[in-house]
Design a binder for these strands. Structure first.
Lengths: 220, 220
DNA sequence: ATAATTTAGCGCACTAACGCGCTAAAACGC
DNA sequence: GCGTTTTAGCGCGTTAGTGCGCTAAATTAT
């Protein structure tokens, strides 16, 4: 039985906003934190580069919509999108009343297909973007830096050769430096990570000098 | 001219969710962090205690809706609500497709009117609540503790006798202890705050012993 | 076989923060 | 006037973290 309120109205009888999701997809490429931009289709009123986004469909959670958007618009299989902020200015979109729920998603660069109409841009050099997409990137960068400040590679960005996902301290540090946007002192970094990693007992390969030990995250 | 997309549809032709706002109003009463609960009207399908909330109306921002909700449902003039999280399970509400944007608002206890159908409950002893209201309170407590960890009374909770809003170190510390939920060592607290406060040059009154100096936040 | 390179760890000097006991100062109570 | 109470600040011992130079170990290059 369909619900009606004290005024005899159902929820659908009231005006409602469209709800969009926009996602700042962050990755590390060439030791730099980058964001994925896609080109708007010609039919859109505001063309140019922007963050991938879509409208929320019935039966979906926001994360479902983010995943659909990244798959359809950018060929990226998203992982675990996290909410950042809701942009709610009633006049923010010329098409009508639209709320946008900004998200962060983080994927390894090798999972972002190279194709026309999309590119990875260093977050330190983002061009002007429509809507609130510049602000969304700012939120996303703050959120990923916060997460990487307290845990080893929480989003799985380390691109390791090992099938079991283990990595060297140097590989881990290079990713953390890319996210942080500045150099990290190796000794302090090791001490911070010491209690959060466990030694696999195996050694890495492929470089001169003493081979590095392979680690995985504690509790994995 | 009203916008239509490539399929000749306007935004209103597509199904859209109702958007609600729910607010964890936090305050300090009797040196304890408390949350405001209101009683649901009898006509609602789910009666009992809950957080104040409402549906978003056209032309409003989320903060507008929060303010209207707190004024109408609880007689509280809200200050600056902050977004916490969007609860988006399509099946979370029996009435239909409803998203809820959870918020935090912080007010001094003397701004919460005492009236039937509402009460302040210590966050350490919240009863079971409908929907995701328990989770919302959890988010809110985490957010306020984070904010109070790095700045002197960011939400203006100190209930001072001074017309210019200045306060003593002890008054400030008692509020920070209520928010943190544990005791703070006075000397360490003073050292942390030293650079964030400025001395008004005036002294407080009303207690035995050396009167305390009055401070205000630096940059106020 | 030796030199060069890289890694992991540590000793050490230094910096920063904590918590407590103590003192001086400034009020009130008697 | 003196005792009591409260506040602000500090000295000090302790704990924790940082960055660097150094060493030993384990590889590759010559």
């Amino acid at each position: 039985m369909r619900y009606v309120d004290a005024a005899g109205m159902s929820l659908d009888d009231y005006p409602r906003p469209s709800v969009a999701v926009d996602t700042a997809v962050l990755t590390v490429e060439h030791r730099e934190l980058c964001v994925l931009l896609v080109q708007a289709p010609e039919a859109e009123p505001s063309t140019g580069w922007r963050l991938p986004g879509t409208f929320l469909h019935p039966g979906e959670t926001l994360a479902d919509a983010v995943a659909r958007s990244l798959r359809d618009k950018a060929g990226v299989e998203g992982l675990r999108p996290e909410q950042l902020h809701v942009f709610d200015d009633p006049g923010r979109d010329d098409r009508g009343w639209v709320l946008s729920v900004a998200h962060l998603d983080v994927v390894r660069a090798d999972r972002v297909p190279v194709r026309t109409g999309q590119r990875l841009v260093p977050v330190a050099g983002v061009p002007d973007l429509p809507f609130d997409h510049g602000a969304i990137i700012g939120f996303a960068v703050g959120a990923i830096r916060d997460r990487y400040g307290g845990a080893p590679d929480p989003f799985g960005l380390v691109d390791t050769a090992e099938p079991d996902g283990s990595f060297t301290l140097r590989e881990l540090r290079l990713v953390h430096e890319a996210v942080a946007g500045h150099r990290l002192q190796p000794d302090s970094f090791r001490r911070m990570m010491r209690g959060l990693l466990e030694d696999t007992g195996r050694m890495g390969v492929g470089r001169r000098g003493k081979p590095a030990e392979l680690y995985r995250r504690r509790g994995e």
